[in-house]
């Protein structure tokens, strides 16, 4: 069996790549995908720890995260569609009307 720390390291790397994706991409769809990647990285850590402690709680938590992610994607994509309809663009760098 592989040492747990490898999983954690992998989880961290994936999380960081997701975070970098959120920061550098301007396409909201890819930003969204990066968020999903971060969630998956977290899920991976959850399952790894659950396995280490020989417990089911971590898995159940992952299950909830998945459902919440599904809901989030449904609403988020609906929002993106709506924004595109009104502005005919989805470039996040063109949306700064909330600036102070």
């Amino acid at each position: 069996m592989v040492d747990i720390s490898y999983y954690i390291l992998l989880s961290a790397v994936l999380f960081t790549i997701g975070a970098a994706g959120v920061l550098v991409r301007r396409n909201p769809l890819i930003i969204f995908m990066s968020v999903e990647l971060m969630l998956n990285a977290a899920n991976l850590a959850f399952v790894a720890f659950a396995s280490m402690h020989n417990s089911l709680d971590g898995q159940i938590f992952v299950f909830f995260v998945m459902t919440v992610a599904a809901a989030e994607v449904a609403v988020g994509l609906a929002l993106i569609v709506q924004i595109f309809k009104s502005r005919h663009s989805i470039n996040v760098d063109e949306m700064n009307s909330l600036k102070g």
Partner: peptide
């Protein structure tokens, strides 16, 4: 400080990160 509040969501995300 108002310069930081530029309305760009990616900029805010950078702050969080």
């Amino acid at each position: 400080t108002r310069k930081f509040q530029n309305g760009f969501v990616r900029s805010y995300a950078l702050s969080v990160f």
